[in-house]
Design a protein around this nucleic acid. Structure first.
Lengths: 204, 204
DNA sequence: CGTACTTTTGAATCGCATCAAATCTGGTGG
DNA sequence: CCACCAGATTTGATGCGATTCAAAAGTACG
């Protein structure tokens, strides 16, 4: 990871007050890298410009669950006021990621009400997205979950795949075999189209 | 619903700055009442002192999904900056609920950085709870979901039931039959104890 | 060209949804 | 007080769909 002084992503630049920009460092992270580990003390928060990162929790029985899969936006933003991380942050595709020191963010937020308000807006969005994800996971069949995803997260049914269907499967909480079968069945039904890196829902 | 001027719940009184207290009204709501409906404009947010409320989304195909089941704390807090509700708020057990006008909250938050900071703390907690719920719903078997709930939400494995197992079932995203069977099986296994209104996980 | 990973297909099994029906419960009105 | 009703609880039978295990083929990358 080589920190550089690239221009901040517009979305991030707009959210963060100017005096924080200098504290941000942007770098390339490779697949397999861990941004943070369960139990460690949060120092930075992360903003994904491109690539793919998952939040993963390792259960007592060894099994792992993906809490979130993110290809753009904040990761670990809830660590703002946490003493410890409650999950792992893992890079699963080469990613361009901006690090922002938490302490500075906290200071700036206490001083700048407008910044705090924007931050609350972002958290509200996140809460809604998570509620939708819960709704999705409460669906029984794989096809229902996939269609729910395409309808709620996609743009008019079009949804960009990150690093393949396998990672999507874990986000949907199903095995990759089940998702592969579901996709190919929907393609045969002409309910779904798959072109390079995209899923497109076909309304009929 | 008869608004009264009861003392605010301590948790709420601590969160809200003093000048907002006067705008809060607390009342009793009966089962079946709707606090708000999908598509309507948010005017109040709600704090549950006791009882039980669910956030429910009605799907296009008519099926319903419970986004959240709450017996204490805020409901509809993400509506702070929303133009419309994206789900229904339904009372499913006689509840004591405090209403707080959103406009006043917004005003107070812009003026009071400490209040904004406390609000962010609350939202961060909510985000974490939702991530745990997603993790839970990504588990395959009913028993795994139930144990996950008892381990993460309960106090040393003890978890209070609200209005029965049926409502718990919908929170876990399974049919009530499956949950009933799972509970009675775990009781036979001596993995779980059920006394009046409580589930207690037995570690062995 | 070999290695690691994804994608794909197959077969067997298991757990849950579904449909059905009986019992139990608390609360309401006669 | 009792009959009655709505909803919760419980048990049973059946079928579907996903998991699981296995294996082969495709693909990216050093």
């Amino acid at each position: 990871m080589a920190p550089s002084f690239t221009q901040l992503h517009p979305e991030l630049a707009e959210l963060l007050p100017g005096e924080l920009h200098a504290f941000c460092t942007t770098g390339i992270h490779q697949r397999g890298e861990r941004l943070f580990a369960t139990g460690s003390k949060p120092v930075n928060m992360f903003f994904i410009r491109s690539g793919e990162v998952i939040l993963e929790r390792i259960g007592a029985h060894g099994g792992s669950a993906v809490l979130q899969r993110s290809r753009h936006g904040f990761v670990g933003e809830a660590s703002l006021q946490s003493a410890r991380y409650h999950c792992d942050g893992k890079v699963i595709a080469t990613s361009e990621i901006t690090q922002i020191p938490i302490a500075q963010v906290r200071t700036a937020m206490d001083a700048d009400p407008v910044f705090a308000s924007r931050w609350i807006t972002m958290l509200n969005r996140e809460v809604k997205r998570l509620r939708l994800q819960c709704e999705r996971l409460s669906l029984c069949r794989v096809q229902d979950r996939l269609m729910h995803l395409l309808e709620t997260e996609g743009k008019s049914g079009k949804y960009p795949l990150g690093s393949g269907l396998k990672s999507l499967a874990s986000e949907l909480g199903v095995t990759h075999e089940a998702l592969y079968r579901c996709v190919s069945m929907m393609e045969r039904d002409r309910t779904l189209m798959r072109d390079s890196g995209h899923l497109q829902l076909v309304h009929r």
